[in-house]
């Protein structure tokens, strides 16, 4: 049984159909990515899976439990969270307070301290700036903070929505390295990206989305070598 199963997910904005029946699976321990152009419905899909946007049809099953109608905050408690598109860190809080919010579901002081040290070790920039107001961080630092904040709640499945968006090439490489690291530590990853090349390179399994539908699927390597994907998404 897959860790996450999405079956025939349909989402509408008013009368406009944004997702026309999406089905895919995420196996435990893998990195799974969904690639696609702007407006393909990637963010809509990510947000509807965690109930931030209501679903019209379809089911979402996480570790055998139907979470189709489970409210977002309870989904987080089940072990699945998301780094949303645009990072959405709490601008008015400090770096430390943001990480504290990430650990909202964890009331154990001891493990909180350990997690905090681990995050500061992994992201030294955050340690340097722990008392700075988060809104004053650079884009790259904000992305690090958003990822750090998300792993503070020990997710079994971490969803990342466009983590490389708006970052310099150097930082993009760094973000993908961090994603690989988080995965190595045992966290399953569902990644949505426009940067198809880099995503496919680290993915065990990948899907291509177009106009609210999944049009192609395969292993990362298969899709990276597919003529169609090369032509449409890899600039070749």
């Amino acid at each position: 049984m897959a860790m996450l199963e999405v079956n025939d997910l349909q989402v509408y904005y008013g009368v406009i159909c944004a997702l026309k029946g999406i089905s895919f699976q995420v196996e435990q321990g893998q990195i799974v990515s969904l690639i696609g152009a702007n407006g393909a419905g990637k963010t809509t899909m990510m947000q509807s899976i965690v109930s931030l946007i209501p679903k019209r049809e379809g089911t979402v099953v996480f570790e055998g439990k139907d979470i189709t109608k489970t409210p977002s905050h309870k989904i987080v408690r089940l072990g699945m969270t998301q780094v949303p598109e645009g990072r959405r860190i709490f601008q008015e809080l400090t770096v430390y307070e943001n990480l504290l919010m990430g650990a909202y579901t964890n009331k154990d002081q001891q493990s909180f301290k350990r997690d905090l040290e681990m995050i500061y070790e992994r992201f030294p920039r955050l340690a340097e700036r722990k008392n700075q107001i988060a809104g004053t961080l650079s884009g790259g630092e904000q992305q690090m903070l958003a990822m750090g904040r998300a792993i503070m709640c020990h997710p079994k499945l971490l969803m990342l929505d466009e983590p490389s968006m708006g970052l310099s090439p150097l930082l993009v490489d760094q973000v993908f390295e961090i994603i690989k690291d988080i995965n190595k530590d045992g966290t399953t990853i569902l990644l949505v990206e426009q940067n198809a090349g880099k995503s496919l390179a680290i993915s065990d399994q990948a899907y291509v989305m177009e106009n609210g539908k999944i049009v192609l699927s395969g292993t990362g390597a298969e899709l990276a070598s597919s003529e169609k994907v090369k032509k449409a998404y890899l600039g070749g």
Partner: peptide, 9 residues
């Protein structure tokens, strides 16, 4: 939305 993703009710 982001608050809900922290597990806040």
């Amino acid at each position: 939305g982001a608050a809900q993703l922290m597990g806040i009710n």
